[in-house]
Structure formats: structure tokens, C-alpha cells
Simulated scan of single mutants.
Amino acid sequence: MFIDSHCHLNFPELAADLPAIRAAMAEAKVTRALCISTTMEEFPQVKALAETYDNFWATVGVHPDSEDVHEPSEDELVQAGALDRVVAIGETGLDYYQMEERKGGRSIADMEWQRQRFRMHIRAARRASLPLVIHTRAASDDTLAILKEEGGGTGVFHCFAETREVAQAALDMGFYISLSGIVTFKNARELHEVARIVPDDRLLIETDSPYLAPVPFRGKTNTPAYVPYVAARLAELRETSVEHIAECTSANFNRLFPKIAS
């Protein structure tokens, strides 16, 4: 049995075909999925998925790359995090990727709004006693520094695509590492090394669907039904069985998100 620890089933690419997606999940033995919020505007849709289907859960948060959206207060996040079926704060973090191309030539200094948003999510998670779902892209130094400055916490670095050194730093702080379809790509050699060093009790798997479909579906719309392909590649890299990957990642999911088990 597999669990998709990070997906976006409210996005248009998937929302219109949810019955077929759920049927494919059942056939692939993907028993549960965590539906991720990226804005407060979409949070009601994400929460509705978790309320409608007993094997879906929700998070609440604002993606670091989302601009011109409602900025929740710390109190708003804490209150939303206390709702039934909401099990984490995020996704949150930092994203400096393609700043010049996509953000009018702004520099890292101009990303202070992202850093303040991240700090607010960290503080909300601590108050709500919930884990963080962290997105970091081209910003790992600042992501780790801010977590340390804010006193750390618990949570997961999702869709991990950074270096072995960043992975070790996150692990040393007590965070989990979630690997996506990227780990199935032949050119992701550094990530393959990361996949080998994450301890069994800190490993999660995800699709980040509708994005990043694993080989052999690369370039197509991703769905939670494809998470076993991530597990299969991890089993190869770690020289273990797919069943072992399924067992340990499912146990880790339950441990990291205790509201699910309560």
C-alpha cells in the first residue's frame, strides 16, 4: 500500500477527472493522499476534497511563489490548522528560481516578502502544533537559516531536488525528505545520491501531481496513481524491495501527520 504525501487534486488538470483518478489510485494500491493548499483562495477547495473523501487530507498555506493573493495572518493559519482534516501548514518556504526572468530582474534582497511569509508560517505551525510542508528551490541556504533562526520545528522538505549537503542539514534538524518523480529521471544523479542516504524513518514519497510525472510517463499529467513508480525507483537505488519502501514511507506519513491517526 502506498501513500502520496503531496498532490494538488484541486488543480484543473485533475479536478475534472477525479472519479477516474480515484479508481486508478485504488488499482495501483495508493490508499491515501495529502492534498496541498497553495493559496488561501483555494483552501476551501482543498479542504472540501478532504471532507468528501475519507482517504484524503488537507493542508493550509500560501506557496512562496504566489503573488497578488490573500496574505493570511498567523491567527488565520492557526485557526484553519485546527479544523478537521487539516493536518499541516504549507506548502510554504522560499523559491528564488528564475527571479530575473520571471520577476522583472528582482534580486534576492527583493524577496524579503517571501522570507517574512515563511517566518509567519513557521510560527503558525508551532502554535498549531502541526508540521510544515516546505518548498525550497534555489533558496536552500536561506530556507535552512530561517528555520534555524525561528527555532526549527517538524515537517517535510517536499519534492526534494537539492544537494546531499542540504538533505543532511534538513535531516539534522529533524525534518523528513519527500522524493518525487524527479528521482526516476536518468539525469538526476545527485538526487539519486540523496535517495540513498535518507534514513528509512525519514523518507516519504509523493507525486506533486499534476506535475513531474515519473518515467515512463514523463511529460504527461501526473496523478497519485503514479507514486508506486517513485517507490520502485527508490527500491532500486536503495537495494531493497518496493514493499519495504511502501511500508516505511506509510509509517513515516502516519508519524509525521499525527492528526490522521487520531
Rank of each mutant, 00 (worst) to 15 (best):
F2T: 00
I3E: 01
H8L: 03
A15P: 05
M25P: 05
V30H: 11
R32G: 01
I36V: 13
S37D: 01
T39L: 14
M40I: 12
A48M: 05
A48R: 12
A48G: 10
L49A: 12
A50F: 02
N55Y: 03
V60F: 13
E67V: 14
V69E: 10
E71W: 05
E71G: 08
Q79M: 14
A80W: 11
A82W: 05
A88G: 13
G90L: 08
E91L: 12
E91T: 01
L94W: 04
Y96S: 04
Y97F: 15
G104L: 06
G104Y: 07
R106Q: 15
R106Y: 09
R106L: 12
R115S: 03
R119S: 11
M120I: 00
H121R: 10
H121I: 00
L130T: 04
V133Q: 05
R137L: 01
T143I: 03
L144K: 09
I146C: 06
K148C: 07
E149L: 06
E149P: 08
E150L: 02
G151C: 06
G152S: 11
R164V: 07
R164S: 08
Q168W: 10
A170C: 02
L179G: 06
I182D: 03
H192M: 02
V194W: 01
V194A: 13
R196P: 02
P199A: 07
P199M: 06
L203I: 04
L204C: 04
I205H: 02
I205W: 04
S209N: 04
L212M: 10
A213V: 04
A213K: 09
V215A: 13
P216E: 10
F217V: 02
Y226Q: 12
V227W: 06
Y229F: 11
E236W: 00
R238Q: 06
E239C: 09
E239D: 14
S241F: 02
V242P: 13
E243K: 07
A246N: 09
A246F: 05
T249S: 13
A251D: 11
A251R: 14
K259S: 05
A261D: 15
S262F: 09
